[in-house]
Structure formats: C-alpha cells, structure tokens
C-alpha cells in the first residue's frame, strides 16, 4: 500500500515566484490498483509522481510504502521497489548501449554491479522472446544501439526494462504522450498486460482521456493540487470520456478561461 499523508509542497519558497502546489494533500493507493490520473497542466500530476519517487523534496508530510515511512529515503533507494517510465523515450534507455546491453543492465537491478561480465549469455534467448512479444521487430536488433531506435521502439524497451525485475510499483509519467497514435496504442496495451501479469500496483499520468477511461481500475482527476474526482470499481467503469470532458470544462470555466 502506498500512502501520501498531509503533503505540503511549495515551489521556490521565500521567493517572489513562491507557489504552493499541495497543501495537506493525501492519497492512498491499495496494492494491485491501476490508477489513471488526468488533469490540466500544472494540476500537480507529475509533481505527485516525483514526490512518490523522491525526485523532489516535500515541505511537510509523509510518504509511506506498506506502512513504512520513506519520506527521508533517497530517490535511488526508493527505486529498488519502483519502476518508472518517463514521457521522454530517451530517458528510459542508454543511447550508446545496445539493446542487449540495456536489457542486461536492467535485468541486474537489485543485484550488485561488479566486475562480472555485463551480458549473461544464458539470458539472451529470454530477452529475444520478450522483445518478440512487442511485435516491433526488435528481437533481430539486439546489437543495435538504443540511440538508433525510434521513439516508440525505445519506449517499448524502456517499459520492458523498468518491469524486468520484480517491482511493487510502476510509475508511468505520460509515457505515451510523445508517441504516434498507433505506437501509443501498442505501448498502452503492453503496459496493461505487464501490469496484469505481474500484479504490479501502477500509477499512470496521462492526457489521453480515452486511455484513462479504458485502462486501470481507478480514475483520479486533479486540479490545482487537489483531487477533484476519484472513482473506482463499477463507478469507474461507468465513467465515459464525455463525463471527464464535461468536468474539465467546468473547471476551466471556474478558472475564467
């Protein structure tokens, strides 16, 4: 279980540009939930993910995983149980390493990075199989540098890499936003399958309302650092894209847009 308790986040404290994003923000995500998060720009979606992962500090409040307070745990240690895919496909892979080297690197997560040979030859077939499932023809490109791949191919590899070793949480930060519609569809279906098969608790930020409605077990809408909509179970299934659009428009009118 993941819990954010009484989070206060202030950007540029003490300066003219000071901006309070979260004030006493709270969220509980149960194990096995697949949460889709939507909201306008600046509503705090990505900040929330960054707070969970420890990429940015908080002014007040606690972050708990399984009841354990991890607020002071540094970012890199939190990733022991968290996988993350970014919006920018370049952030999920190493451009100068080949696909094989990238996968080997990710496969070793949680173990020591010593002076043993980087690629475990016995695993190559397994990698090839996992790549073949993607249907992007990557299984024949094991020795191609990741930097030479297209955005969609890189994002697919990044998704594989982030879920290769056992993790409890998967953080998806608009991970289909930079892809063309068809590739986005493939990546989204792949995400859904991995999350189901591996029983990972996932939090996905997206601007695609259809994905938010179609995928996941729970739907959040955020606005100005607050959760304005939280639906799960049957109520989530009944939610349609037009419901969300309606709510979006309401919020925008309030803002005077």
């Amino acid at each position: 279980m993941l819990e954010l308790r009484g989070i206060t986040k202030i950007y540029n404290p003490g300066e003219i540009t000071e901006m309070t994003l979260f004030r006493d923000f709270g969220l509980i995500v149960a194990d096995g939930e697949f949460v889709s998060v939507v909201g306008s720009n600046g509503s705090g979606k990505t900040s929330m993910l960054n707070i969970i992962c420890g990429s940015i500090p908080v002014e007040k409040g606690q972050i708990l995983i399984g009841g354990k307070d991890i607020t002071k745990v540094p970012e890199y240690k939190r990733y022991a149980s968290i996988g993350r895919v970014y919006q920018n496909p370049a952030l999920g892979t190493c451009p100068t390493l080949t696909i094989l080297e990238n996968l080997s690197l990710a496969d070793n997560k949680g173990r020591s990075y010593g002076l043993a040979r980087g690629v475990d030859k016995a695993r190559i077939d397994a990698y090839r199989e996992q790549l073949a499932v993607l249907g992007l023809g990557l299984e024949d490109k094991l020795h191609v540098k990741a930097g030479a791949l297209s955005g969609g191919q890189r994002q697919a590899v990044a998704l594989l890499m982030s879920t290769m070793t056992p993790i409890d949480f998967l953080i998806l930060d608009e991970h289909t936003a930079a892809l063309d519609p068809k590739t986005a569809e493939i990546i989204m279906a792949l995400t859904d399958r991995i999350v189901r098969e591996k029983h990972i608790t996932a939090i996905m930020v997206t601007h695609n309302l259809r994905y938010a409605v179609e995928y996941g077990t729970r739907l959040l809408m955020m606005h100005k650092g607050q959760i304005v909509l939280d639906r799960s179970g049957k109520r989530k299934e009944e939610t349609t894209v037009s419901d969300l659009l309606g709510l979006f428009n309401e919020i925008s009118v309030e803002c005077g847009n």
């Binding site: 970012e75 890199y76 240690k77 990733y79 022991a80 968290i82 996988g83 993350r84 970014y86 370049a90 952030l91 999920g92 892979t93 190493c94 451009p95 100068t96 390493l97 080297e101 080997s104 690197l105 990710a106 070793n108 997560k109 949680g110 020591s112 990075y113 010593g114 002076l115 043993a116 040979r117 980087g118 982030s162």
Partner: peptide, 20 residues
C-alpha cells in the same frame, strides 16, 4: 556490469537512479 553502469552514468543519469 560496473562498466555498463559507468557508461549509463554518462549517458543517462536518470536510468542509473531508476536502477536503484
């Protein structure tokens, strides 16, 4: 493995961090 991680550090620090 250490060499890979070193190359990754120069390439993409975020990836190294997300590998824990």
């Amino acid at each position: 493995k250490m060499g890979y991680l070193l190359r990754a550090t120069g390439d993409n620090e975020k990836l190294v961090v997300s590998l824990g």
